[in-house]
Design a binder for these strands. Sequence first.
DNA 1: ATAGGGTTAG
Length: 762
Amino acid sequence: MGGRITGYTANLACGNYHSVIGYSKATGPAICVAILKAYKKCFQNLYYVEQLEDPAIALALAVQTTSRLYSTSAAISLNSQIAWYARAGQIENARRVFDEMGEKNIASWNAIIAGYFQNNQPREASLLFDKMPERNTVSWNGLISGYVKNGMVSEARKIFDMMSERNVISWTAMVRGYVQEGMIEEAESLFWQMPEKNVVSWTVMLGGLLQEGRVDDARRLFDMMPEKDVVARTNMIGGYCQQGRLAEAREIFDEMPHRNVITWTTMISGYAQNQHVDVARKLFEVMPEKNDVSWTAMLTGYAQCGRIDEALELFDAMPVKSIIACNEIILLLGQRGEVAKARQVFEQMKDKDDGIWSAMIKVYERKGFELEALSMFVRMQREGVGLNFSSSISILSVCASLASLDYGKQVHAQLVVSQFDHDVYVASVLTTMYVKCGDLVKAKQIFDRFSLKDVVMWNSMITGYAQHGLGDEALNIFHDMSSSGVPPDDVTFVGVLLACSYSGKVKQGIEFFESMKCKYQVEPAIEHYACMVDLLGRAGQLDEAMNLIESMPMEADAIIWGALLGACRIHMNLDLAEVAAQKLSQLEPKNSGPYVLLSCMYASRGRWGDAASVRKKIRARGVGKSPGCSWIEVEKKVHMFSCGGSEGHSEQPVIMKMLEKLGGLLREAGYCPDGSFVLHDVDEEEKTHSLGYHSEKLAVAYGLLKLPEGTPIRVMKNLRVCGDCHSAIKLIAKITGREVILRDANRFHHFKDGVCSCRDYW
DNA sequence: ATAGGGTTAG
C-alpha cells in the first residue's frame, strides 16, 4: 500500500491524474481524499467539483465516480472531515464533528485548532490548545503558524521560545512570521541561527529578501542553496520579473529540470506585466497545463496594456472564470461603456466577493448610472454584503451627485461601525458628500475632526464652500491649508478660483491664477481656464474672457464656451452669445440647450425674428431633447416627471419604459411611490408655451405647485435650471408662499416669497 | 493526514 501511495504522489505531481485514479483499486480512506483532489484537478472545468465544500457530498461523488470504474467503497476519516470543513470556512461544522466524535486523538485536537486559526479565531484556538490533554510537536508548530497567519508574531515568538524541542518546521514558521511583518533583520538572524535548514527554510528566506526588493541579495542566497526545487526557482523567477529583469528570469526558467503550472504562470505574467504581452501569449499557448490562474494572468496582461478585445476573447474561452478575471472584465466593459454586458457577467457569477460588488457599483457610478448604483447598494444590504473601502467611496460619490442625503447618512453610519471613517480619504469623500447635499455644518464637523488632513480633504472643503458661494470661508480654508504645509494641487486651485468667481473677487482670482504657476508650480489646466472665463465673464469683462480663450494653450471645450455663454446671458451680450452657442453646437451636436438659451435671450429682448431663426436651426439639425426623466424626493415620497421626446410623442413608449424601470428601482430602494407617484407628461405643457421651455424643469415647477400645502421641499436631483424654469419656480414660490431649495449643477437656489437669493444666476 | 515555501486584482 505504501508503494501505491508513493505512486499516487508522483503521478499527481506530474499531472498524470488518470494514473492516479488507476491506483484507487486498493484504496483506503486517506487515498480517497487524494483521489478527490486528483478529480478536482482533472475536471477543473466542472464548476461544481471546484465548489465542493461538504466532505459528505465530496465522498458521495468520489464513491459514485470511482465505483463506476473500480467498485470502490470509501470513508473519510473524522479528522479529515474537521480539516475539510475548516478549509471551506465552515468552522461550526468542523466543531460539530469534533464534539460528536467518540475518541479524539492529538490529530483531532490539532485539526480543530488549526481550523480556528484559519477562520481568524485565534482566541478560541488558543483556549482549545490550553485544554488539550497532551501535545506533540505538530500541536506546538500549529500554534506558531496559527499566530503568524493572524498577524500575531510576538505571540508566535513566545510559543517558539517556550518550546522544548524545536524542529525545522518550528524555525521556518517563525522566520516566515518575521518575513510577513517585514521584520527582515529578525528573520535573517533567526535564519542563520537555525541548527538545520531544508529547501523550504531557504525558500522562505529567499522570499523575504525578494519581498524587500533585494533581488541581488536574494540571488546570492539562491546560489548558496544546497538544493533548489521548483518552488525556490519559481520564487526567484518571480523576483526578477517584478524588477523587470526578464532575461535573468528567463535564464532560470530555461535551465529548470521541471516546471509546473505556477512556474509557467509566473513567467507568463512576468512578460505580460512588462509590456511583452505577445511573448507571454506564445508561452501561454505552449504551456502543458493551464489552470484558471494562468488564464487570469494572461487576461490581465491584455487588460493592462489596453488590448481589450483580446482580453474579452480570452475571457470567453476561459474554462473556469475566476473571480479575479470576472472583476477585470467587469471593469473593462464598464470603461468601454458596455454597462449591460458588465452586469451580465456580474449576474452570471456563482459566488461574488465584496470586491465584485464594488467593481459593479464603480462601473455604474463612473458611467453615470446613479440609480442603478444605489439599487445595487440596496441589494447588497439585503444580501448581507458589507461595504468595503472601495464600494463605500463609490456609493458616497453617487449620493453626492444625486444629493441623496438619506443614503449618504446610511453609508456614513456603516462607515462608523466598520471604522473606515477614520481613514482620511474616506472622510474626504464623506465631506464632499455632505457638501453636495447641502449640509455644510456636518461637512465641517468631519473636516475639523482630522488634525492630519491630506490634499483631498482640504480640497473637498474649499470646493464645498466655493460651490455654496461662501468665497471668504473657502479662502480662509485655503489660508489654513497653506500654513499647514500641505502643498495645493490642481484641484485646490479649481476650488479657489471658483470661490473667487462666485463671490465676485475678480482681482484676487486673477492673482491666484497667476501665482499658481510661478509660486506653487501647478500648471494651469483647462479647468482653470474655465474658472477664469467664468470669473471674468460674471464680472462683465467679456472681452477679457474672450481674449483668454483665444490665448489658451489648448483648444477650448464645451465647459469653457458654456461659461462664456452663461456670462453673455447675464450681461446680455448677444454677439458673443452667438459665437459661443455656435461653438457649443459644434462640440455637442446633440445638445440643443445652447440654442434654446440663445433664443430665450433674443425673445427677452423682443427680437422675435432672431429667436425664431435660432429655433429653426434647432429643428433643422433634428435635435430633440432626448427622452429622460427626473425625480424629486419629498419626505421619502417620490414624485417623478417625464420629459423630452421629440415632437409628435414618437418617443413616448421609450419614456414610459424608462419611467417603469425607474419606478422599480425606487421601489426597490425603499421608497413608496404607490399613491404618491406623480407622472407628468410634459409634452402637453410644451405645446402651450411656444418658446423653448425646458420641459423637464417646467415639469418640476408644475409638480411643486401640486404638492400638498405645507410640504417641506428639501432636495432635488441636480437639475440645470434654465431661465424660463427659474421664473416659473419663482412665480410658484410666490403664489404658494412656500420656500424652495433647489440644487443646480453649480450651486443652490433659494426661492422665498417669490425672490431667488442665489447671487449670480443668469 | 495535523505543522513550514511559490502564481492572477483593486
